[in-house]
Design a protein around this nucleic acid. Structure first.
Lengths: 134, 134
DNA sequence: CTTATATTTAACTTTCAGGTTAATTAACCC
DNA sequence: GGGTTAATTAACCTGAAAGTTAAATATAAG
């Protein structure tokens, strides 16, 4: 695994590291701050490693202040991943025929309203009929 | 690594699997279709495994048609990951002033439309001013 | 200079992801 | 039935991820 994107996603594929990012979303924190919630579950060197993974993935940056290493979120890494996801947005937002499933969930009455709206909406929809073979 | 989100990100942390998703974005494909671009680099069983990883991560679904296993993108898995990223959107959007670059990309005419829509949209927007410390 | 605090490095173990080849299952076709 | 195509399973290898403990490095503070 070499490429940046793989490194970034790999870094995100761990709940400990995601928790650290969540913590950093509230503001800077040095390594021992990040470690605190986990010291019952893992050692400090383990935390150091996680931090390094996040750093190499471009998800955080680590500064220096005396013996402390203040970390903060790095927009670059997050954006890299988000940009990649963006190209699939259509799939989870509308391209799938989710309407059918949706209609099953709502009540019959509600369904009628929704359906009529859906029909008019379809007239304005762009040609997204790919993949709909059979 | 147990949780769904970790599984999903782990699945995305591999260029072969991301390429498979890209292929599936163009439409359904069975396993050997997905394998074709990679058969110079890896064996078919290896592909089978990648497909299984994507499937378990909820990123694709695999059907059956005689001896073929037609695969297609699954919105759920993608949405799971995208939803998680969403909570960090403010960080990568506000850090670089994205709007400036965006406006350069669209034509002047289009930009006017977009801008006017943006203004009205802002009136209805919820308070999204978080993260702008310092 | 000594001690305390913050963090990293080193060396090692264990687990698992990703690959291989060979064999197997399943469905089609003649 | 026999052969072909599509895909999976089994058994195995290898390297790297994630954790450990113990020792080392830096910096501040007495």
């Amino acid at each position: 695994m070499q490429d940046t994107l793989s490194q970034t996603f790999a870094a995100l594929a761990d709940p400990t590291r995601r928790a650290m990012l969540a913590r950093l979303a509230h503001g800077e924190a040095n390594v021992s701050d990040l470690a605190r919630p986990f010291l019952g579950e893992m050692s400090l060197p383990a935390v150091t490693k996680h931090v390094k993974v996040l750093e190499r993935a471009g998800l955080i940056t680590k500064g220096r202040d005396a013996q402390w290493r203040p970390c903060k979120l790095n927009a670059d890494g997050l954006k890299t991943a988000a940009d990649w996801m963006e190209q699939y947005r259509a799939f989870w937002e509308e391209s799938f025929d989710r309407l059918g499933e949706y209609l099953k969930k709502v009540t019959a009455k509600k369904a009628v309203e929704v359906a009529s709206k859906a029909v008019t909406a379809k007239k304005h929809a762009k040609g997204k009929s790919r993949g709909r073979k059979q």
